[in-house]
Design a protein around this nucleic acid. Structure first.
Length: 459
DNA sequence: TGCTTGTGGGTTATAGCCTT
DNA sequence: AAGGCTATAACCCACAAGCA
């Protein structure tokens, strides 16, 4: 055993009792949350907390690691540094960090921990400028520091910064209720589940123009009348109107519950049923253009999964290695077992070969990984999956819709069959079946303007 | 070991559609 | 009716690779 390990193990005991962060914090909704990254300007980078926070000791001066000089300041015998290097080695092995990353983390730890003494914590704001200017990975270093329990994350959560920006300009009396409502949506409460962050973004963005307008006329939500709400709604159409009403209902419902308003001005205003158009099949040339656009093994596999198995991009990202059973030619997508066809089998083999060659040591169990996620254990981001088909008519989602429609057309418009094959909700399956029926009745009529395939793009 | 650099891919914000 | 998911664009970070 290397000499420093003995010291270090002593410290480990000390540490586990005193400084190791508590178990991961309260459950916050769905898995696969993204960890935000610092955003410029540097001094107050944003992030989303993932686990318990350590409180920093009071009155501790902020250190300036940017002046660190290896010759002058390195103290390689510091036991904390030794323990951290040992931990980095362990984490690196476990996650298959490439040589470059391991060396970088090693250098970063020397900078941060050479002068470290017991009881101190290392703040994100202290190390970020020093490591960034030297091109060292802040994220991997933070992983090691967190593991040995000396890291304090002092970044402001990105949600807070976002909320502050969005509440700006709203009259104080209204703002109080809106802020309370938004926080409750985000964090959850005694009788309220925490919502997905994107839901909160959507909600507040949707009604912000309305709130700004009301801020000019009213001081408090209490003064908003049913007439005010109707006026706002009259200016909107379609899904804009639907959503605005739904969100206002959510806001006023909360305000009523907490007693800040007496009467809910949105009650008994009908949202109305959403009219769905007939789903249109994709033109073959759109599909061909997308197929031609994907050249990398991972993208080809994603395309096959969407186009053949009607998998949603979220489901593709979540796929684990053991969801793929090459031997038995089976595939498990979101819990549904599907037989694997020739094409999928082929691109899957291609990808697995590539994956093995490029990241032989990765500890990530997800089927699809990239150079970032190979170092950790999370899924790839949504963007990385959808980017190759950006700007094309046949996106992953469109290919998926097309596949389901095709099944309905070739197998007959049978909702039960669709629900079974693709695991669709009954209502959704009926919608596909209806579209198929409409298309079968008038197969020659096709209007590209209403086709979902043309959404957001100019072919 | 340390420095520079190109770029693949990540984050954020927003609108619209899909699912339950 | 409510909530969640996806596509997209702008912006920019982190990694890999090359070199000294």
């Amino acid at each position: 055993m290397e000499p420093y390990l003995e010291k270090v193990q002593h410290h480990q005991l000390f540490f586990t009792n005193l400084h190791r962060p508590r178990q991961p914090g309260p459950p916050r909704g769905k898995q696969g949350r993204r960890r935000g990254r610092p955003r410029h300007p540097d001094p107050a980078p944003a992030y989303r907390p993932v686990s318990g926070w350590l409180q920093p000791p009071l009155f501790e001066a902020r250190r300036d690691f940017t002046r660190f000089n290896r010759q002058e300041h390195a103290r390689l015998d510091n036991p904390w540094l030794a323990w951290a290097r040992h931990t980095a080695h362990r984490l690196g092995e476990a996650h298959g960090w490439p040589r470059g990353v391991r060396l970088d983390v090693g250098r970063a730890l020397v900078i941060v921990l050479s002068g470290h003494v017991s009881g101190e914590v290392v703040r994100h704001s202290e190390i970020f400028p020093a490591l960034r200017s030297r091109g060292l990975s802040v994220q991997r270093t933070v992983e090691v520091l967190s593991d040995i329990g000396v890291f304090h994350d002092d970044r402001t959560p990105s949600f807070e910064q976002w909320l502050e920006r969005k509440l700006d300009g709203i009259a104080p009396g209204i703002r109080r209720d809106v802020e309370h409502w938004a926080r409750l949506l985000h964090d959850g409460g005694p009788r309220s589940q925490p919502r997905d962050e994107s839901t909160v973004w959507n909600y507040l963005n949707r009604i912000r123009p309305v709130l700004l307008e009301w801020s000019a006329q009213h001081d408090h939500l209490r003064e908003v009348t049913r007439g005010d709400v109707l006026t706002e709604l009259d200016a909107l159409h379609g899904s804009q109107r639907r959503h605005t009403l739904i969100v206002l209902r959510s806001l006023f419902g909360r305000a009523k519950k907490s007693g800040t308003i007496f009467k809910n001005p949105t009650s008994r205003i009908r949202v109305g049923q959403h009219e769905y158009g007939v789903l249109q099949p994709l033109e073959p040339e759109y599909v061909n253009s997308s197929v031609a656009a994907v050249t990398k093994p991972a993208d080809r596999l994603a395309l096959a999964l969407a186009a053949v198995h009607a998998a949603r991009s979220g489901a593709i990202r979540r796929l684990q290695l053991d969801n793929l059973d090459i031997g038995n030619r089976k595939l498990v997508i979101d819990g549904r077992v599907r037989p694997m066809d020739e094409l999928t089998l082929h691109v899957a083999r291609e990808w697995l070969d590539h994956r093995r060659r490029r990241w032989p040591d990765t500890a990530n169990l997800h089927l699809l990984i990239n150079k970032f996620t190979a170092l950790g254990t999370g899924p790839v981001s949504a963007v990385s999956l959808t980017a190759p088909l950006r700007g094309r008519a046949a996106t992953l989602e469109q290919l998926r819709v097309d596949r389901q429609l095709e099944e309905a057309l070739s197998h007959g418009p049978d909702a039960l069959h669709l629900a079974e094959v693709f695991g669709l909700d009954e209502k959704t399956a009926i919608r596909y079946a209806n579209s198929a029926r409409a298309l079968l009745e008038r197969p020659l009529e096709s209007n590209p303007a209403t086709s979902p395939g043309t959404r957001g793009s100019t072919p």
